[in-house]
Structures are given as structure tokens and as C-alpha cells.
């Protein structure tokens, strides 16, 4: 089955994983800038990372017939020092010219600090200034509910924001409704131990419907499964979801959202 992996951190994955994704039917993959498991000590470290996302990974993916796109930002975990964060952010406009960069992300919150919120809002403004879509990370575990509420409150202050161009990722049962009700897209991340299990993601889909919803593996350096999306599709089949419903959530929905960037061409 063909599908789109809308959130994967391939800099942390092996080339074997690209082969597995291709064998499973992955046509395109999006890589948001995030914490790579280890704090970078300088803005130069991010410059190298942005080059890796925009130059190296698209070539590595292309060997397996997968289109690779990226989102750029300084992630919230490394953005608690506003001076450092702004230094990294000043690099972004140069990279926005790259033909595979779709937008600003994954920005958001980590421990829900004031500095994280300030830098989050500066990223939203950067995206608005350049007319770009936004991909938002919501915090982990006990911090998610509060962080999602802070993010929604903050976004409500941006009167010019087109909510259809914003996806709020890593939603779970306690955060999906406020995100969808406010008109944003919502992403469900399929993780073995945290975020959504395959069955819980399908429950959310059954309860809330497929409108403005996608699922991703968010595979990275931690406990995660690059094949989570096709595995969830298989589980949907065993729960008697039809082929059209499966294709909508794993292919058409991400295509619809991502095509808001003119650069997302399959």
C-alpha cells in the first residue's frame, strides 16, 4: 500500500530503515528539525544539521525512491536560552530557499517554560512572515495537557494565522478534541511505550472521524518503530476499516495538508 510518513527523524536512522520504508510503500517522508538526542553546543552545530536535513537526507532517501522533505526550527528542548535560540533562528531564512523545505517545525514546548513559549511565538511569527505552514510538537507525558493548552492559547493571539496550515502533533485522547475543535490539524504519533498505541490511534480516528487527522511514526533515536504507520494500517484492516478509509488517513490526508506548500510535489 502507498503511504506518506509525515514525521520521521531519519538523521537518527540507518539506511536499512529507508529500505524498509520503501518496501512498505512509503512514497514521501517529512523530517521536522528536532533534538537529535544530544544538545548541540553552538549555532554551527545547527547549521550542519540543517544542511544534513536539506542536502544529505533527500539524497539518501532518493536512492530508495522516497521523496524527502523537511521542516526547520530550533526545537523547544534546546530553545530555553533565548539568545542561543535566536542565533539559530537567524540561520533559517537562508535554508528556507531550499526546494525541499516545507515550513517551520517542529516548534512547540518541552517543559512549558516562559522562554520556550517566547521562542515558540517568534517561530510562529517567522512562519507568518514567510507564509509557511507550521508543525507543532506538544510536550511529553505529564507535560502534554498543559503544554497543548498553552500552545492553543498562544496561537489564538495570532489573528492572521490560517489554522488550516497548522498541524499540532502528538495528540492523545486528552488533547485531540481541543486541537480539532479550534480548526487545526492534529497528528497522532504511534510509539511503542508513549504517545499513541496503534489501537488507541484507531480509537481516536473512529471517535473523531478522519477530518484533519494524520498518523506518523516519529521514528528517531529513541524507542520507536519506522514501520508504525503501515502496521497501523494493517491493524485498521483487522478492525474492518475499508481500503478507502485506510488510504485517506495514511496517504490522502497528509498529502492534502502538505500540499499547502507548493514544494510538496510527489
Amino acid at each position: 500500500m502507498k503511504y506518506i510518513e509525515p514525521h520521521a527523524h531519519m538523521v537518527s536512522r540507518t539506511t536499512d530503515d529507508y529500505e524498509k520504508l520503501a518496501l512498505a510503500g512509503c512514497e514521501a517522508l517529512c523530517e521536522p528539525a528536532f533534538w537529535a538526542g544530544f544538545d548541540r553546543s553552538s549555532a554551527d552545530g545547527f547549521h550542519d544539521y540543517f544542511r544534513q536535513l536539506t542536502e544529505y537526507e533527500p539524497k539518501r532517501a532518493a536512492k530508495y525512491g522516497i521523496k524527502h522533505f523537511s521542516w526547520l526550527c530550533i526545537n523547544p528542548k534546546e530553545a530555553d536560552d533565548p539568545g542561543f535560540a535566536r542565533e539559530v533562528m537567524s540561520l533559517i531564512p537562508e535554508f528556507l530557499k531550499c526546494p525541499t523545505v516545507l515550513g517551520i517545525g517542529e516548534i512547540g514546548l518541552n517543559k512549558n517554560t516562559r522562554n520556550e513559549l517566547t521562542i515558540f511565538e517568534e517561530h510562529v511569527q517567522l512562519a507568518l512572515d514567510h507564509g509557511l505552514p507550521i508543525l507543532i510538537h506538544t510536550p511529553h507525558l505529564e507535560d502534554k495537557l498543559k503544554g497543548t493548552r498553552l500552545i492553543l492559547d498562544s496561537l489564538a493571539g495570532f489573528s492572521k494565522l490560517d489554522r488550516a496550515k497548522v498541524i499540532i502533533d502528538h495528540v492523545e485522547e486528552h488533547t485531540v478534541a481541543p486541537v480539532l475543535d479550534a480548526g487545526y490539524w492534529a497528528g497522532m504519533t504511534l510509539y511503542p511505550h508513549s504517545k499513541c498505541s496503534l489501537d488507541r490511534a484507531i480509537d481516536i480516528l473512529e471517535i473523531h472521524g478522519p477530518e484533519r487527522l494524520w498518523m506518523n511514526s516519529a521514528c528517531d533515536w529513541g524507542v520507536s518503530d519506522p514501520l508504525a504507520v503501515p502496521k497501523c494500517a494493517l491493524q485498521m484492516k483487522s478492525r474492518r476499516h475499508g481500503a478507502d478509509a485506510i488510504e485517506r488517513i495514511i496517504y490522502q490526508n497528509p498529502k492534502d495538508f502538505l500540499s499547502q506548500s507548493p514544494r510538496f510535489i510527489l
Partner: peptide
């Protein structure tokens, strides 16, 4: 299992969750 507070905190005393 969620933090019930509502205000952003001045500084995080630890990273992770």
C-alpha cells in the same frame, strides 16, 4: 497523569518527563 497547573514555569528544574 497530567500536570494540573496552568501557568508557564520560570525555569525547568530538570529536562525530560
Amino acid at each position: 497523569f497530567s500536570d494540573p497547573t496552568t501557568e508557564p514555569i520560570p525555569q525547568a528544574s530538570f529536562q525530560g518527563a
